[in-house]
Design a protein around this nucleic acid. Sequence first.
DNA 1: TCGACAATACCGACCGGTTGGTATGTTGTC
DNA 2: GACAACATACCAACCGGTCGGTATTGTCGA
Lengths: 203, 203
Amino acid sequence: MKPNARDKLLDTALSTIRKKGYSATSVDDLCARAGVTKGAFFHHFKSKDALAVAAADHWSQSTGALFASAPYHDRADPLARILAYLDFRIELVAGEIEEFTCLVGTMVQEAYGASDEIRDACRRSIFGHAATLEADIGEAIEKYGVSGITPESLALYTQASIQGAFILAKAKNDPDVAVDMIGHLRRYVELLFKPKGEEARKK
Amino acid sequence: MKPNARDKLLDTALSTIRKKGYSATSVDDLCARAGVTKGAFFHHFKSKDALAVAAADHWSQSTGALFASAPYHDRADPLARILAYLDFRIELVAGEIEEFTCLVGTMVQEAYGASDEIRDACRRSIFGHAATLEADIGEAIEKYGVSGITPESLALYTQASIQGAFILAKAKNDPDVAVDMIGHLRRYVELLFKPKGEEARKK
DNA sequence: TCGACAATACCGACCGGTTGGTATGTTGTC
DNA sequence: GACAACATACCAACCGGTCGGTATTGTCGA
């Protein structure tokens, strides 16, 4: 089972851009790491920016598969599913920083003003993943009678908090701070859905 | 009052790096925008990375002055001060994206793996600003009898959420989503400190 | 008050290496 | 023999950084 040049470049792009950023990652560097030639690169991608768009889509696909098969969907209660999702996000924060941070969150910061195509690919990835949370949030809102928020808005806020957690982890060069930040996000969700006047005792 | 080359370069760096990212901003570009020559650049900064560190420190200083003189300190109640701070942050989200997003949040994503000096300058800026919130949070925790969180942790979480809000605004190319995200952060703080007889009694 | 000197601020041509991108093969497969 | 999948060689523009030089300012003794 031999991966072709295109797949090797895409996989290499994910790790390299996450570690060095998009602009600082050169085509030559990518080719050398992937073990392919420059000719192969421009055979599969018409430009460096096109590779970035393809990498963002590849990212959407692989992370989509990861979350689709994650265990948090099993819970019967919609709030439990949301909290289990956040616990899963906490579990993912492990090892080196470039291994758990977000490709598209990193890339959009650099490229939002330079390339509409890259920005839009990153938007699709982030907002698309957020959309997968909306059903559970909507159910929880209805079940627990919460008012004043929409499923879309809260779903996006989970992603904002997690992206921000990655920034702080990078700044401090310490994954633990990201775990702490997602813990706050988890507490927010608990407080939001906590039935009034009743203390939900769990864990 | 004629600004010297160093100050012009620093001011230019803030806006340019916020718009294009650090790696994509060339020394020539900076010099052209600032109206100075390359000789002047390397007279004042020994390298491009040194300019980045100086720009981060300059950013810390100017934002520090902005928040120090902001009106939210006037409130008598510590929780009111925190909420007024968040309202102030919401007010700041106006105009073009590159005018309200965070220089060091953008820069640390690119440079955390490439330069310890830049990463540390960004860390000082973010964590230093967060530290200015700790006193108010500490007072509010004591006054409202909240347990389970530390002032440092919550202060950092405000910054994480705000940084994440900027990422989403960039991805969507829409400042409004950032306002919505900071609104969630504000709601979290309200819920955290809302007097709850039952929870205050226990533990 | 002044000239001598030094330090600082700034200039712009220049350098070697790297950049994204192209033009032209070569190879394997149907 | 057509076509996709690569490889090789190459390019002009650009990159961060250097260097020798000049203009301006500060200082201090006479």
